[in-house]
C-alpha cells in the first residue's frame, strides 16, 4: 500500500494523483453508487405522506416488491418484456452475425468504408426518429397498409399497432446495430490466415464458423446480446410510440408509478428491471465464458 502511493506520486505527481482521486471519486460516489443506493433505499420504504417521512411509519419493508410479485397483470407484463427482449436479441444476432463477418473478413478494400458508413449512419440516427419511421409505416394510412390494399391482399387497413408486434418490430429495427459493431470489432482481430488454413484442410464453412470464428467472436457476441437485451428491456420510447394503449410494457408501468407520484413503488420496479438486466448479463458471461473485462473492450 505504501508502495502504491509512492509509485503513484512518483509517476503522476501530487496534482495528477489528486486529479484522479477527485474526478473518479465524484463520479463513483455521487453519480454511480449513491444514486443507485438511494433508489434501492426508496424501493424498500413505503409511500408516505410528507409529514410521515422520518416518522415511525418510515421503516424498511419489502411491501413494494410484494406488490409487484402479487400483481398478476404486472408480472405478465414483466414476462412479456423478458421474452420480447429475448426475441429481439435473437433476431438481431441472427441478422447481424453474417453482416459482421462479411464486413470484417470477406470484403476488402474501399468497399469496407462505404459499407461501414452504411451502418454508422442509421446507428447514429436518433432512436426516436427510427421508431417514428416505423410509426409512419405501420399507421392506418401508412405505406404498408396502402401496399397491401393495392395488392388486393386486404380491403380494410389493419391496425398493426394493436398487439405487441409493432413494438417488437420497432425495437428490433432501433437496436439491431448495437449487435453489429461489437461482433465486427472482435471478428476484425481474427487472423485471416486461420480461416484460409482451415479451408485448406477441407473444413466446411459451417465447421469453420463453429470451430474458429464463433469461439473467437464470443466476447463480441456477449456484448452485443447484453446491449441489445438491455436496450430492448429498458426502452421507454418504443412502447410509447408504437405500443397500443391497451397493452402496457414494463417501462411504462414504471413511468406510470412516477407519474402517480408513487416513487417508492416505481423505484422497486426499476430495481427489478435492473436486476433482470444484470442477471441476463451474467448469463451471457457464463454462456460465452468471457470476463467482464473482455466484455467492454
Amino acid at each position: 500500500m505504501r508502495d502504491f502511493w509512492k509509485n503513484a506520486l512518483r509517476d503522476l505527481g501530487k496534482i495528477g494523483v489528486a486529479y484522479i482521486i477527485i474526478t473518479v471519486g465524484i463520479w463513483l460516489v455521487f453519480m454511480i453508487l449513491i444514486p443507485q443506493l438511494i433508489m434501492f433505499d426508496y424501493s424498500l420504504r413505503p409511500m408516505l405522506a410528507l409529514r410521515d417521512i422520518g416518522g415511525p411509519k418510515d421503516v424498511w419493508t419489502l411491501k413494494n416488491y410484494i406488490v409487484f410479485f402479487t400483481n398478476k397483470l404486472h408480472m405478465a407484463i414483466f414476462f412479456k418484456t423478458i421474452w420480447s427482449s429475448f426475441i429481439v436479441t435473437l433476431v438481431a444476432l441472427a441478422i447481424c452475425y453474417p453482416i459482421a463477418f462479411y464486413l470484417a473478413k470477406v470484403v476488402r478494400g474501399g468497399k469496407v468504408g462505404l459499407l461501414m458508413l452504411g451502418l454508422i449512419i442509421p446507428y447514429w440516427i436518433n432512436e426516436l426518429l427510427r421508431l417514428f419511421a416505423w410509426q409512419l409505416i405501420l399507421a392506418d394510412s401508412g405505406i404498408l397498409n396502402q401496399l397491401l390494399i393495392l395488392l388486393g391482399i386486404i380491403v380494410d387497413p389493419i391496425n398493426f399497432r394493436a398487439g405487441n408486434g409493432a413494438v417488437i418490430l420497432g425495437m428490433t429495427y432501433a437496436y439491431i446495430l448495437f449487435m453489429v459493431f461489437p461482433i465486427y470489432n472482435v471478428m476484425e482481430s481474427l487472423d485471416r490466415n486461420q480461416l484460409d488454413a482451415a479451408r485448406d484442410l477441407g473444413a466446411s464453412w459451417l465447421r469453420i464458423h463453429r470451430r474458429i470464428v464463433m469461439p473467437h467472436a464470443k466476447p463480441g457476441i456477449a456484448v452485443g446480446c447484453t446491449m441489445t437485451f438491455m436496450l430492448a428491456a429498458g426502452t421507454v420510447a418504443a412502447p410509447q410510440l408504437l405500443g397500443s394503449p391497451s397493452s402496457f410494457w414494463f417501462t411504462q408501468v414504471i413511468n406510470t408509478n412516477f407519474e402517480c407520484a408513487n416513487w417508492n413503488q416505481g423505484a422497486a420496479y426499476a430495481t427489478v428491471l435492473m436486476l433482470l438486466c444484470m442477471i441476463f448479463m451474467f448469463i451471457m458471461l457464463k454462456i460465452f465464458k468471457v470476463g467482464l473485462k473482455e466484455l467492454t473492450q
Partner: peptide, 20 residues
C-alpha cells in the same frame, strides 16, 4: 463498477439520479 453505467438501462440512471 466504472463501466457498469453502460450496461444499466438508461431509465434506471435517470430515475436514480432524479431521486438522489
Amino acid at each position: 463498477v466504472l463501466v457498469s453505467p453502460i450496461l444499466t438501462p438508461g431509465i434506471i440512471l435517470g430515475i436514480s439520479t432524479f431521486l438522489f
